[in-house]
């Protein structure tokens, strides 16, 4: 597979959220606004990139039987780094995302990239895959966050577009499920054309 396709495969065809239905908990839990979704996506991008790099470097040294626990420890280390760095420099966003930062550890999408891609491919492909998939995940979260913010608060990235209140339900829990449902339907339609 050439690197350009390796980079772009996650955006529509293998999108982690819309197609593979992985990493749904942060995708629904943190996308109350476009900015929060973007922040969560970027944090996940860092973790998936770094864990892909480390797994790709050490794949020949990790015994096959203990590979999953090893990957989890590698991912957990980078999640801890992300957690502490965000707490120090991005306090407001960190408070907003809350529990979902440590929960990147159990994001099946991150472990999935380590297991399905980085453990079988070269370092360079794994870096490209990490960035591409991370950006695709960020794109999905930002889209979902933008849709919910637009419908729920009449705003985009914190800028109010229309006067007055939006449909509050889209900022609350049920709106997350409904918005994602319709976004998946839209993506399925795009894929067919």
């Amino acid at each position: 597979m050439n690197q350009a396709r390796n980079f772009t495969k996650g955006f529509v065809r293998d999108n982690p959220v819309f197609t593979m239905m992985l990493g749904l908990c942060p995708a629904l839990g943190t996308t109350t606004s476009a900015f929060n979704g973007f922040g969560m996506g970027m944090a996940t991008l860092f973790v998936v990139l770094m864990s892909n790099i480390v797994v790709a470097i050490f794949k020949d040294f990790i015994p096959n039987k203990v590979r999953i626990p090893s990957y989890i420890v590698i991912i957990a280390s980078f999640v801890t780094i992300t957690d502490l760095v965000m707490e120090a420099f991005m306090g407001a966003l960190h408070a907003e995302l809350g529990l979902f930062i440590p929960l990147i550890v159990v994001n099946c999408f991150v472990l999935g990239r380590a297991e399905a891609f980085a453990s079988k491919n070269t370092l360079f492909s794994s870096i490209v895959d990490g960035i591409g998939m991370g950006l695709a995940f960020t794109m999905a979260l930002t889209m979902l966050g933008a849709a919910r913010e637009l419908l729920g608060a009449n705003a985009l990235f914190g800028v109010e577009l229309v006067e007055g209140d939006g449909m509050l339900v889209f900022v609350l829990a049920p709106g997350a499920f409904i918005a994602l449902g319709y976004l998946i339907a839209l993506m399925n339609k795009l894929k067919k054309d």
Partner: peptide
């Protein structure tokens, strides 16, 4: 047709959450 599979499950879960 467009809602078959995952989308309709999502919307159902949304109504359940509601």
């Amino acid at each position: 047709k467009g809602m078959k599979g995952n989308p309709i499950i999502m919307v159902t879960a949304g109504l359940l959450a509601l």
